[in-house]
Design a protein around this nucleic acid. Structure first.
Lengths: 143, 143
DNA sequence: TATTGTTATACTCTATAACTATA
DNA sequence: TATAGTTATAGAGTATAACAATA
């Protein structure tokens, strides 16, 4: 980043900017993992957020993905075409459709999470103490 | 995240996951800032990475954006149409085109950075000491 | 009437491959 | 021949608006 345009940042701003850099640096890795499983990034987030033991309505997924509900239709369509997810009409309100991971979807999700959760180089290289410190700070922030 | 599928994470993995959550939580905010300026997210990253005082070739931008060079053509086209960026053939090699921020582009970029760098709620709510700690840890990680 | 999810539309991003103009 | 950037193409994500079925 050019120094001229970024004279002096507060600790909070710099921390935030560094979070962005870290994430952006790793975007490629996440995309690469996604294509290993022949998934797009939004499909990865969807699969990740679905709980094998707790079906949720489409609308809940839209909220998690932070996108319009109309997009979820297509994203779920493609997951469903691959037999990873099923739509199940809710009993109390037949407008609502619950998303259920299939057996295949559950298995794939587990593999996916194992790959995604592996810490990237910048974090892995920190000392164990720093890793714990970072975790605790982020826990506190997101609490 | 469901507990069943995520039995126990190392500190590094959990820290990494929390970084992802923090970033994802804020994606909406970044998108909202982008549309305030009528920019798409990749356009924001492009504008952010361009240095008013240091023109770079298209290929360098592609590398920064972590996308194929062919995408940069369109992204830059749209920025150029709005008079924010100019292509300038390099002197030493006329195949190369340097990207130069216009006066308007430079001004808009400054406004944009001011908005983007404002720390989001989770970080802003940390104590000043925690903010510095977080910054220092991330600096160390990304070093 | 209001709400859930779908469809239609238009635009952008994305990678791959073929092309051009320079080198 | 090799390289920088463009164009062509196909697929996916994105928001908006209009719609169907249900409440």
């Amino acid at each position: 980043m050019p120094e001229a345009a970024t004279p002096r940042l507060s600790a909070a701003s710099e921390a935030w900017r560094l979070v962005g850099e870290l994430w952006h640096e790793q975007k490629q890795r996440v995309t690469a993992i996604a294509s290993e499983f022949e998934l797009s990034p939004p499909q990865v987030w969807a699969l990740r957020s679905l709980d094998p033991d707790d079906p949720v309505p489409m609308s809940a997924l839209a909220e998690t993905l932070r996108c319009d509900a109309s997009n979820v239709t297509g994203i779920v369509d493609r997951l469903q075409d691959r037999g990873l997810v099923e739509r199940r009409p809710a009993q109390h309100d037949r407008r609502v459709k619950h998303l259920v991971l299939t057996e295949r979807g559950t298995a794939l999700r587990a593999q996916l999470l194992a790959r995604l959760d592996a810490p990237p180089a910048p974090i892995a290289a920190l000392s164990p103490e720093d890793q714990r410190l970072l975790r605790d700070l982020l826990r506190r922030a997101l609490d």
